[in-house]
Simulated assay, not measured.
Amino acid sequence: MKIAIYGANGYQGRLVLAEATRRGLDVVLVGRDGTRLRGAATAAGLSDADVRPAALDGRDALVAAFREADAVINCAGPFTPTGAAVVRAAIAAGRHYVDTAGEQPYIKEVFDTFGAEAEAAGVTVVPAANDACVPGDLIAGLLAERLGPLEEIAGTHVITGGGGPSRGSLRSVIESMDIIKAGGLVYDDGDWHVGLPARHTSIVLPGGSAAIPVAKFPLPEVVTIPRHVQVRHVEGLVEAALSARLSIPIDPEIIAGLPEGPTEEARRTQRFTYVIDAVAADGRRARGVVEGPDTYGTTAVIAVESARRLVTDPAKPGVLAPAQAYDPVGFLGSLLPHGIRWTIEEGMSGS
């Protein structure tokens, strides 16, 4: 199996490259700068790797590079201004596509724009194959199987440690600043809206006793969950302090002077807890929890596993949410060796 990694020389791209190599997969390194791509290949011990320089506006070069692989992983954020060109080229090449995006408007754009095109090409597109959206979406599907039609789902992200975001993540924040300040899209009564008030302002985390303040935030799962779960309301939440920090404009020149991303040592100190609280239409409750280390490393694992499964166990063509493309229990089980644990408990609610 061969995987094309677009943006393989970036911070997240190098982690995806390392994970693909660890699994023994062949790779094609694709991106705008051939020199940087070759440097990334050498650093990964792949001095003879297939390197394909291709600019975003060089559609023919992109398509040709992607045709050398069985699937494409796009790691080059910010995705809002650039991602559509990569999706379009993957579809034109007839190759399955996943990306590591977390930008809510971009993810919705992929669903709104490329469904028919991907279906006609026999290609499966799964945006937001990252540390949070894939397990959160899969857990939501399992909750719906237990509870039936849902009144609401509230997803909450809490992350501690880790040494801070990468430069790419901060640039994605700049692209998403307007939607971050607005609290993100909220799904309600059959459509997505901006500006709806949050239903929840605090949460008691697993094992906790005191509620912590939370605020609305543009989480990717808000876009994907309603694609396959019968639910009236979906909102995303993060710790209120984090939301406030990310709502402050960032000077791009300051970002350019920061380290490219957290060190490996810092990533080892990071822990994430993603909570999915569901309320059924009849009032029954259940809670799903995903916990693990190292959001960037976990994203690499999930992105490679997502692409691999599309090749070995094809899903229906089109743009799909994770739970539409993959068996939830099987995929979540594949994450256990990487320190990622998940649980579902009925009758639980931390709001």
Rank of each mutant, 00 (worst) to 15 (best):
I3A: 03
A4H: 01
A4Y: 00
Y6F: 15
A8Y: 09
R14I: 11
V16E: 13
V16P: 09
L17C: 04
E19N: 11
T21I: 11
D26I: 10
V28I: 14
V28Y: 06
L29G: 09
R32H: 14
G34C: 09
G34Q: 03
T35W: 01
R36H: 10
R36W: 05
A40P: 10
A44D: 13
L46R: 15
S47C: 12
A54K: 01
A55P: 00
L56P: 01
D57C: 02
R59E: 14
A61G: 04
L62A: 07
E68P: 12
E68R: 15
E68M: 13
V72F: 06
N74I: 08
P78N: 06
A90F: 01
A90Y: 03
Y97C: 08
T100Y: 03
T100W: 02
Y106R: 10
Y106N: 13
Y106T: 13
Y106I: 11
E109D: 15
V110H: 11
G115L: 02
G115S: 13
A116C: 02
A116N: 09
A118V: 04
T124Q: 11
P127F: 00
A128F: 00
C133Y: 00
V134T: 09
E145N: 09
V158S: 06
I159V: 15
I159L: 14
T160E: 14
T160K: 11
G163T: 11
P165C: 09
S166Y: 02
L170C: 13
S176V: 03
S176P: 04
S176F: 03
M177W: 02
D178G: 14
G184N: 06
Y187N: 09
H193L: 03
V204Q: 02
P206N: 09
A210R: 14
P213K: 01
K216T: 06
P218N: 12
V223L: 06
T224G: 05
R227H: 11
Q230N: 11
Q230T: 14
G236M: 10
E239N: 14
L242N: 09
R245K: 15
S247Q: 12
I248L: 13
I250Y: 03
P252Q: 07
A256Q: 14
P259Q: 05
E260F: 00
E260N: 10
G261V: 10
G261S: 12
T263P: 07
E264L: 10
E264T: 13
R267Q: 15
R267G: 11
T269E: 07
T269Y: 00
F272N: 10
Y274I: 09
V275Y: 05
D277W: 07
V279I: 11
A280K: 07
D282S: 02
A286N: 04
R287P: 07
V289F: 08
V289W: 05
P293A: 08
Y296A: 08
T298H: 07
I302G: 07
A303Y: 06
V304T: 14
V311I: 09
D313T: 15
V319L: 10
L320I: 04
P328Y: 05
G330R: 04
L336P: 05
G339S: 10
T343A: 15
I344A: 01
I344M: 01
E345Q: 08
S349P: 01
